[in-house]
């Protein structure tokens, strides 16, 4: 029954943490192989021996993690938790996948996590914003209650970001401003998170690069969106008014002539009137057939004038906005890749 439990634990824990190929130390490789072969005793022995040898930080964390797995699998819970604590202190960001690791080992790991003070998974997101109008998101996890101070350090400059008592996931917003409200000068900044609880303390850091740029100004408008100017001249529809008018005036003159002629002088041939009238009627007819000349459209002219005034007003506003935008600074914050492993020193709680 006891062996069945072991098999169950190991079945869940089979790919312990990472492939053994990355491990340089031969003893540690043998220990990992022994664990894979369910030789727990041998795995513990070889892991302990490997720890006495020269190991890199990651290999040390790997050796302690293997011990944690092995002790937890062999029901040595306290030893397992201790081994996991060491692994976490060396590599605070170490994480177990609960879907792949047995609940027994996971619970030992979580117990170890709650007994140490570390700042894990410090993450600074990239951000671009106008100075004073945006922020850089900063996230990290504090494993146990502690006074957490976060600041940005660049040379002699140290800008406080936050100070509070926290545990668990912490989300901060850094506005990248100096205490006087000015944007921080460009350069590389170390975002340092320090957690202190009594005698214990732990710090983690992330380097970010802050660059300054000019704030985009608004382009001037050449037209109001959605409002097109209207034609200031409109061609009236073709009509017979010219011919009608010619007929009317010719008729008036003809009737007047007829009425004013003296009966004593006989009837006049009226060829003079006929000549001019025919010319006038012909002109009126042609003008009626011709496309009328465009006429000023008063309503459209007034509308366009309003539109132009609006455009001038909007552009004046834009010019004013651009004036203040030119005084602002666009900040771009980009996290730089970490050079090493985990954070600074720590202690037991």
């Amino acid at each position: 029954m006891r062996h069945f439990g072991w098999l169950l634990v190991l079945a869940f824990a089979s790919p312990t943490a990472a492939p053994a190929q990355n491990v340089q130390n031969a003893t540690l490789r043998r220990a990992l192989a022994a664990y894979d072969n369910l030789d727990i005793g041998q795995a513990i022995l070889l892991a302990k021996r490997a720890l006495t040898e020269r190991l890199s930080g990651l290999e040390q964390a790997r050796a302690y993690e293997l011990l944690g797995f092995a002790y937890s699998a062999s029901d040595s819970l306290l030893k397992g938790v201790d081994a996991f604590k060491q692994a976490i202190l060396i590599d605070p960001d170490r994480q177990l996948d609960p879907a792949k690791i047995s609940p027994k080992i996971t619970s030992s790991f979580l117990l170890a996590l709650s007994q140490v003070l570390v700042v894990r998974q410090l993450q600074v997101d990239s951000a671009s914003f106008v100075g004073g109008k945006g922020f850089v998101p900063i996230r990290f996890t504090v494993t146990s209650p502690a006074r957490v101070r976060t600041r940005a350090v660049s040379g002699a400059t140290s800008v406080p970001i936050d100070s509070s008592v926290a545990t668990g996931q912490v989300n901060l917003r850094w506005q990248a401003q100096l205490p006087n409200g000015d944007p921080v000068p460009d350069g590389n900044y170390l975002i340092v998170v320090e957690a202190t609880a009594g005698q214990n303390s732990f710090s983690a850091s992330q380097t970010v690069k802050v660059t300054h740029g000019a704030v985009d100004t608004l382009p001037h408008l050449t037209a109001l969106p959605g409002y097109a100017p209207l034609p200031e001249e409109e061609t009236p529809p073709r009509n017979w008014t010219p011919l009608g008018r010619v007929f009317l005036y010719t008729g008036i003159v003809g009737a007047g002539t007829f009425a004013l002629e003296s009966s004593r002088l006989g009837s006049a041939p009226r060829r003079e009137l006929a000549a001019v009238s025919v010319g006038a009627i012909l002109t009126g007819f042609i003008m009626s057939l011709k496309k009328p000349a465009p006429q000023p459209a008063r309503g459209n002219i007034l509308y366009n004038r309003l539109l132009r005034e609006q455009l001038v007003r909007r552009n004046a506003d834009i010019a004013q906005q651009n004036q203040s935008l030119r005084r602002q600074v666009a900040l771009k914050v980009v996290p730089l890749p970490k050079s090493g492993g985990g954070g600074g020193g720590g202690g037991w709680q």
Binding site: V246, Y249, T250, V253, G256, T257, L260, E261, S262, E272, L273, A275, V276, S277, G279, A280, T283, A293
Partner: peptide, 28 residues
């Protein structure tokens, strides 16, 4: 009394126009 009818047609700028003019005078 005098009555008159005139017609004028040509370029819109008035540079060249054809003209026709009728005048009727009656005096006693």
């Amino acid at each position: 009394v005098e009555l008159g009818l005139g017609i004028s047609v040509g370029r819109s700028d008035g540079r060249l126009r054809a003209t026709g003019d009728y005048g009727f005078q009656r005096v006693n």
